[in-house]
Each structure stands twice: as C-alpha cells, then as structure tokens.
Design a binder for these strands. Structure first.
Length: 319
DNA sequence: CGATTTCCCTGGCCGC
DNA sequence: TGCGGCCAGGGAAATC
C-alpha cells in the first residue's frame, strides 16, 4: 500500500520527466472519484510535490520558469520547484491501496493496440485523440501529453482519488486539509509529537494513522516505528524518553523506506513498474508468530481501529 | 464535537 | 475444479 516512501519514490521519478509537459487530452473511468482528472486539459505541469501520501501536481495555463525559459530546470529536492510561478491549479492524486502511475512512451500511445497480456482482456475505449487503444481493465485515468506520451493511472480496488482544486484549497479533501507536518520538517519534534498525542485519548496507533499528528504513515511504517521505539500501539500516552525514541523511529523508518525504493508486499510498483525492496528489511509488520528481533518473544497480532496490527507483547508493554 | 463503526472495492487465498 | 467466505486497508461517511 503506498505510504509516504512509496509516494515519494513515484514523485521523484515523475517530476523530471513530466515537468513542462502539456496535457492535450484526458480520459477517466466513469466514477466520481476520478472524474475531475479531465479538468486539467490544456494546462502545463510546472511541478510535482508531495504532502503525506498525496501527490500534488501544480499546473499552469502559461508555464514560465525561474530562468525565463519555457523548459524546467530539474534537480530540486523533494519537489522544490525552480519555477517562479505559483500554480493556477493543483491536481491532487491519492493512490489509495492499489494505485499506480506510469508514463507510456509515444510508440505505445497511439495506433496499434497495446498488448497487456492474455489475462487482461481489456476493452477498447479508443477515442479520437487517444487513438485506437486497449486500456488496462483497471485503468482509472489517462492524460495524453502534447508530445504523445500518456500518463496512466491504474487502481484495481478504486480506493484512490483524483481531485482538481485551486492551489491550497483542500476543504474538499478533509484529511489533506487537516494534515499534520511532514515527518522530515523541523516542526516535527519529539516535543510536538508528545504534545499532540496527549491531546487525544485515542490509541497511539489510531492517532498516527489519522495523518493529523504527522503526515504519511500507514499500517506498515506505523507498526515498524512503534516496534522500533518499543511503544505499545494501544498506549494513549508516552513518556518523554518514548517520544524521543518514537520520533526517531518514525523518521528513520520512513527514510529507510525511501532509500529502499518503497515496500512491495503485493501491489506496489514505482512509476517504472519496478518493485521496491523495503519489504526485505521489515522487522515487525507481517511477522506475527515469529520471534521478536529485540527480545526473542513471539510477535502477536491484534486489530486496532479495524487495522491488522503486529507488535511484541513483551518489549512493547503498555506503560 | 470527538470517538467509533461501516463502507467502498477486488484479487488472493483457504477450506470444503 | 469450483465456489463461498474471508481478508487486506486509506479515507470518507455514517453513527454513536
């Protein structure tokens, strides 16, 4: 499931190849969750940023860049734009559980049908601008670029979402509107973490999953971070020492995820179609019944706010 | 208003 | 081999 490291991996791959591209046409699967994808036709991509698990694609009707040219200068870290303009429009993409983004080259974009393999059997939705084209059966949106490449959004389980908004106007996306700080920002400190956790009586895992305390954690990285910090997922309070350990483990588990190209358990692929490698480094998630790598006890499974949770009953005792 | 529960989706897997 | 049932889970909506 794409969490912050997976979304960041995809963002870093897409920004250099899509900055400056102009969207010539768009197609969407016929449901409300993806319908707004067509509202960006005619606009140019000026940057691709990320907040938590949300991709934010900045678009302008008249792309101008900081150096005065009409082409972007690539190289900014974490989507920092080198563009003078503030986007006219933002397209927000959430990958949900199974969302994938990729960019098809021109020779696969028009003309002959694309062979997706015998198990797909996708229907031909060919239109005038996209040409005759067999779409993957779980394709939810496509954007045809003026250079004939196609941005493809595929989402088997349709938990993803696409929204087009005025820049910074996120009231239609409640979670994004109330998103906590980025885990790598200076604002996110052990003191901040502890203070925010103590504002609610909900279980720590529930709070971290809410995105309101800190942005970007999902089920995998939450379980990893709580285990590494030896904090019980049902705790409602943390000591100062625990807040330091938990802050550190949140940051380091997410950094490891990025460094390893994301976690592929089943569905996740990056923008090139490649699997990540972080699943090889997981020490807690999915290991219930196996030995705890801290204390040798047996990791247990429970359910917290409807989510499968793995933890060590011995070294993650409630305090 | 905050906390909790339900629902959306589909493919993979299990047992019979 | 086929099939019913269950599980995975981010986030929005409904309910408590």
């Amino acid at each position: 499931m794409p969490e912050l490291p997976e979304v960041e991996t995809i963002r870093a791959q897409l920004e250099p190849i899509l900055s400056g591209a102009t969207i010539a046409d768009a197609w969407t699967f016929g449901t409300q969750k993806f319908a707004q994808a067509t509202e960006v036709v005619g606009l140019s991509i000026i940057d691709i940023r990320r907040r938590g698990k949300y991709l934010i694609i900045g678009l302008s009707s008249c792309a101008r860049f900081a150096d005065g040219s009409d082409t972007p200068e690539i190289g900014g870290a974490y989507g920092t734009p080198d563009i003078a303009d503030i986007p006219d429009i933002e397209m927000i993409i959430h990958l949900g559980m199974t969302g994938r983004l990729s960019v098809a080259p021109p020779n696969e974009s028009t003309g002959e049908s694309v062979d997706f393999g015998s198990d797909f059997g996708g229907a031909d939705f060919g239109g005038a601008d996209f040409g005759a084209r067999v779409r993957h059966p779980h394709r939810r949106a496509e954007w045809l670029l003026s250079d004939d490449r196609i941005i493809e959004f595929t989402d088997t389980r349709r938990f993803g979402r696409i929204a087009v908004v005025e820049p910074g106007q996120y009231s239609s996306l409640a979670t994004l509107a109330h998103l906590g700080p980025e885990p790598f920002d200076d604002e996110f400190t052990p003191e901040f973490l502890r203070a925010r956790l103590h504002q609610s009586t909900q279980a720590i895992k529930t709070q971290l999953m809410s995105q309101r305390v800190v942005a970007g954690l999902g089920n995998i990285y939450v379980d990893e971070a709580l285990w590494a910090a030896r904090v019980n997922p049902r705790s409602t309070r943390v000591t100062k020492a625990q807040s330091v350990a938990l802050h550190d483990s949140i940051v380091s588990s997410l950094e490891a995820g990025i460094r390893n190209g994301g976690t592929t358990l089943r569905d996740y692929r990056d923008a090139t179609g490649a699997s990540g490698n972080n699943q090889l480094t997981l020490k807690c998630y999915g290991r219930s019944g196996l030995p705890c790598l801290h204390c040798g006890g047996t990791l247990a499974r429970t359910v917290i706010s409807g989510r499968s949770t793995t933890f060590c009953p011995l070294c993650q005792r409630r305090k």
